[in-house]
Design a protein around this nucleic acid. Structure first.
Lengths: 337, 337
DNA sequence: ATCGAAATCGCAATCGTTTGCGGTAAACAT
DNA sequence: ATGTTTACCGCAAACGATTGCGATTTCGAT
């Protein structure tokens, strides 16, 4: 039961020297003779000595770990972001503590507290849909722990943001939809207090305007999940007011829309064109495959981690929060005429 | 730059009392007067005091965190496992450090070292495909840190295992395939040193035998990824030796097979029936949708975490490693006649 | 007036590691 | 013989919190 994990003291005792000497020997300090170093290093290897990172953290007030809070790992996009974060953190000798908020504000908050208790050196967060209060993030900032928001950011919290250019991307794919002959459009949207919700909707409206198409509020329908999309499109069909083009705020929502359309024997893309946003791996598997935007989650994760590590290194002194945009790509497939 | 994170000493200084008193007051120790407690708690709240988990870990030689090593979070299955793990850990006040091996032994090993350095109280691991040496896991056991393997386990490392009943599930779905009239079968298999690879293949063979079908080694083809499946099926088609049923070791492999079949205008399921394993969210989106096995990753994650926490609590004294089987479900869709 | 027992609280060690500073011994110079 | 340098190493404090034990005060009891 008692654990026999070997410490610096064990090595010191065995060799009849002091712990400080062992410590210095292990890190090749010039004060220590070569024989002592040799003895220490050999014994350390034999005993399988592994430094206790916890003691180091306490000593240095630095944990060499960063916290990540994301809505849900089950989304392909977020897991690619995680990979990007991990690769950068790993290179720099940091480890990553990942938490899921499950889109719940309460969980996001308690995750934040847990991460603070563990004294992460920095925080990467993608906001839950519910989140409208940011005290838990300001708390980090008040304690000089840098915070970087990615993907799901908000203007109400002042911190570095790494986001995709939602507006431009939305504008682009909606324009594409229009130019391919889809004119009577509907947008399945996310909550507008999230910047992704707002900017994608804005891109949608402006693309309509640019092409001289009229706009009515009824063309924006709040629905950002698979099931919700099914319901929303179902309602549209029932009402007889069927659009000939749908811009969904994300791929899963687009797939939901497609499912409802197929059920009513509406042809995609002939009767209705559908485009999504944020190319997961699903988009290429459907029939027809989905024209969408590649969000490049991996690049976003890398960039966010780089910025955070930079803030950790250089401090948040002359703090001047930046907004970094990640490039997107229009991926043309079969769901548009 | 200097962080102003408030400690117990700050409270003590402010109140003119000792750190020990503050500590005791905060945890309602009977030795402390109600007035002192009140003063301490109020000040702690005002100062936003949060206990330093690192100091606690060091003091108690217990970090209240568990490590998880998985091949890749991008797989739907693994992210559901993570959710299960997190839910249980969260309830018990543990936090979770997730690492990806990216199917690399070297990365798995260095992740393990990192987790040990951070003195996790337990380890949950799903082996990388490459892994055939288990020293990094034995190291944990030698230091009395419990290890539980899930999904990807090996007989060569003695620890608790939480796996699905691969054999039974494979036997079942292959039997289903045969009984629906597919007789000339091929199995796209995973490496045989992984138990999932071995048992799914075994289930395949035994199902053939049970139904009086002949078996030849050429019916088992090593291919366990989307791209590899495309290549493998492509080769089969080129050789003219086209099967009328394919049992893929996982869903993505099945989808790869389907893609190759479709490319050659072979009808699914009329010309070739296809079944997968481990229902991701993809399986229901394809056309035709894929008949497969639901692996129930969430349940697996919960179970694995429960077992680990139990081992942590009760120690690994009279160590008697168990093998726990998670129930699976045959999900009938459209890819079989 | 003296004693004993509560009631409160502080001292100091501890967890594992680092690090400034001081100490010792040998070797060299004067 | 005395002073100075060099090489090597240990002491002790520190990081933040906990905890056994002892110390002090107060108060009622005798």
């Amino acid at each position: 039961m008692r654990s026999n994990q070997v410490t610096i003291k064990d090595i010191a005792r065995e060799l009849g020297i002091s712990a400080s000497t062992v410590s210095r020997a292990l890190k090749d300090h010039p004060d220590i003779s070569v024989e002592t170093k040799k003895a220490v290093n050999e014994l350390a290897k034999n005993l399988n000595y592994q430094p206790n990172a916890i003691a180091l953290s306490l000593k240095h007030s630095k944990s060499f770990s960063i916290g990540v809070i994301i809505p849900e790992t089950v989304h392909y996009f977020f897991s690619t972001v995680i990979s990007g974060i991990e690769d950068i953190a790993y290179e720099a000798g940091y480890n990553v503590i990942i938490c899921q908020s499950n889109e719940l504000y309460s969980r996001e908050k308690s995750n934040a507290h847990m991460l603070y208790s563990n004294r992460v050196d920095g925080l990467l967060v993608s906001l839950a849909k519910e989140t409208t209060d940011f005290g838990h993030l300001r708390f980090f900032q008040d304690n000089n722990i840098p915070v970087v928001c990615f993907d799901r950011a908000s203007e109400e919290i002042l911190c570095d943001q790494v986001i995709i250019d939602d507006y431009t991307a939305a504008h682009r794919i909606v324009s594409y939809l229009i130019e391919r002959g889809h004119q009577k459009l509907v947008h399945l949207a996310a909550p507008q207090h999230l910047s992704i919700g707002y900017y994608r909707q804005k891109g949608f409206r402006d693309a309509l305007e640019k092409h001289g198409l009229p706009f009515d509020e009824s063309q924006v329908i709040m629905a950002d999940q698979f099931e919700k999309a099914i319901d929303a499109v179902e309602k549209l069909i029932q009402s007889g007011n069927i659009p000939d083009g749908i811009f969904a705020v994300n791929d899963l929502t687009a797939l939901g829309a497609m499912k409802a359309l197929k059920k009513h024997k509406l042809s995609i893309p002939n009767d209705v064109g559908v485009v999504g946003f944020g190319d997961g791996q699903n988009a290429q598997l459907t029939d027809p495959s989905l024209t969408t935007i590649d969000q490049n989650g991996y690049a976003m994760g890398k960039r966010a981690a780089e910025i955070l590590l930079d803030r950790i290194k250089n401090g948040t002194a002359n703090f001047d929060p930046q907004k970094y945009l990640i490039d997107t790509r229009l991926i043309v497939r079969e769901s548009v005429r």
